[in-house]
């Protein structure tokens, strides 16, 4: 066998496969370190000093959040604005807010929200995406939900809905009663408000800016 080609040689491919796999894995681990730093949760100091974090600290619930077009980046980004009451207070401490978020995140898993809804776009497709649910016009002063639940604020309306979704149906496809307590509901609303402040690189696009513009049917 004088001129056996390297291209048909198993060892060449085996070594190449090992190299490519190893190197891709190393790159992924490196990228993971870089990303982990960038998506670590911020803290109260950051918020007070106006430092932008991809994932802000839990005390973001003390602030007003909007979702606005950023000309430089070419898509919408969450903007953290002035102070705003959340369940009657705008001075939730780092610990209190952290505990509330912890409860909410646990609740989101204990009740399997992700198996009907999408969170950050991942999950199930049976119910609306919750990434920016906090900013949904339906919960706002001009939306239907505050009146429907007879509550004065967005957070109270949401908490009421989460405890008794079967009492406030707006579509034939209803959310079931998942046994969510008043305390858990508060945590879940904090979780939803916090999620809406995460910088998702512009997903979802045009959120809440097109209501009523076009008849989709």
């Amino acid at each position: 066998m004088a001129n056996k080609s390297v291209w048909s040689d198993n060892r060449f491919w085996q070594r190449s496969a090992t190299w490519v796999t190893g190197f891709a894995s190393v790159l992924l681990i490196w990228l993971t370190f870089d990303t982990s730093v960038q998506i670590a949760m911020g803290n109260d100091e950051d918020l007070k000093n106006g430092v932008t974090k991809r994932v802000p600290g839990p005390t973001v619930i003390n602030y007003k959040i909007t979702y606005e077009m950023d000309a430089k980046r070419g898509h919408e980004v969450p903007v953290i604005g002035e102070k705003e009451n959340f369940f009657g207070r705008d001075d939730w401490s780092e610990e209190e807010a952290g505990a509330l978020l912890h409860l909410g995140k646990l609740g989101s898993q204990a009740k399997n929200c992700m198996d009907c809804h999408t969170l950050l776009g991942n999950g199930a497709y049976y119910a609306p995406d919750l990434t920016k649910a906090w900013l949904d016009p339906a919960w706002g002063p001009n939306g239907a939900m505050q009146a429907l639940t007879a509550k004065e604020t967005k957070e109270e309306a949401m908490a009421e809905f989460l405890q008794h979704p079967d009492r406030y149906p707006t579509h034939a496809r209803m959310m079931p009663d998942l046994g969510i307590t008043a305390k858990e509901a508060k945590g879940l609303v904090a979780f939803l408000k916090h999620m809406s402040s995460i910088d998702t690189n512009g997903f979802p696009r045009n959120f809440g800016h097109m209501q009523g513009a076009i008849n989709g049917k």
């Binding site: 016009p137 696009r205 959120f207 097109m210 209501q211 989709g216």
Partner: peptide, 8 residues
């Protein structure tokens, strides 16, 4: 078209 809200 509708911008990904609950109503959308």
């Amino acid at each position: 078209q509708m911008g990904a809200t609950w109503a959308a």
